[in-house]
Nucleic acid binder design. Structure first.
Lengths: 107, 107
DNA sequence: CCGCTGTTTCGATGCTCATGGAAATAGCGG
DNA sequence: CCGCTATTTCCATGAGCATCGAAACAGCGG
């Protein structure tokens, strides 16, 4: 994970609207959600949502799959784990936060 | 942790320069680093660094402490843990990623 | 009190983003 | 092949960001 990739993903999540979209997808699980359902739940213009989705997809945080005329969106869990891993990677080099405590702190 | 706070922190980290600053501080550990050292290591104008630091501080990700004329900067580990926790909070509601697997995935 | 080093504020510029309405496109169902 | 629904692209606008140099400020050491 390059720092540029991490920054792009963090920036993608660093917007309330996109973060809301992303969390909605995270909650939806592997079934995913159609774009239209997302739009209803979040209450923004379709064009705005499309714009944000494109951003999340281009950074690899979200995937899409076509089912007939509707597009199903899903959170990319491995990508999220990778990003979180990058953040905590160099955390706690000092003694006050031993590596073994990481899992506990994040659980 | 409100979604607005999380988004602000993610946005703060979603910039290559700021992410570099932050990671440098994370690596530095509890000793922290003076602003001047940060500037040398990262190689940007002092005014630019000051601007970015202000942003990281205002979101609570970094703290500063005065020591004579130099300002020591430190990464705020609890804040980072809180943010990461927010991200993984609703992760894996579905069966394919049981809560107990979270720690393993993030370790 | 003076000057020096470290840091911030000011000002200016160019760039990218967030947003939504309107129009275009995609692909099924008949 | 047509029309319908779902989604994207186009366009325009207002707002905020990244960057740096110059100038101002803070506080110690003498």
């Amino acid at each position: 994970m390059s720092i540029e990739t991490a920054a792009k993903q963090l920036e993608a999540l660093g917007n309330v609207t996109r973060l809301r979209v992303y969390r909605t997808l995270v909650r939806a699980g592997d079934d995913g959600l159609p774009v239209g359902s997302l739009q209803e739940r979040i209450g923004i213009a379709a064009s705005t949502l499309s714009h944000h989705l494109h951003r999340l997809i281009s950074t690899g945080l979200v995937t899409q799959e076509r089912q007939a005329t509707t597009l199903i969106c899903r959170a990319n869990y491995p990508a999220m784990h990778g990003l979180v891993g990058f953040l905590v990677d160099e955390c706690c080099i000092d003694a006050r936060c031993a590596p073994r405590e990481k899992a506990a702190a994040l659980a």
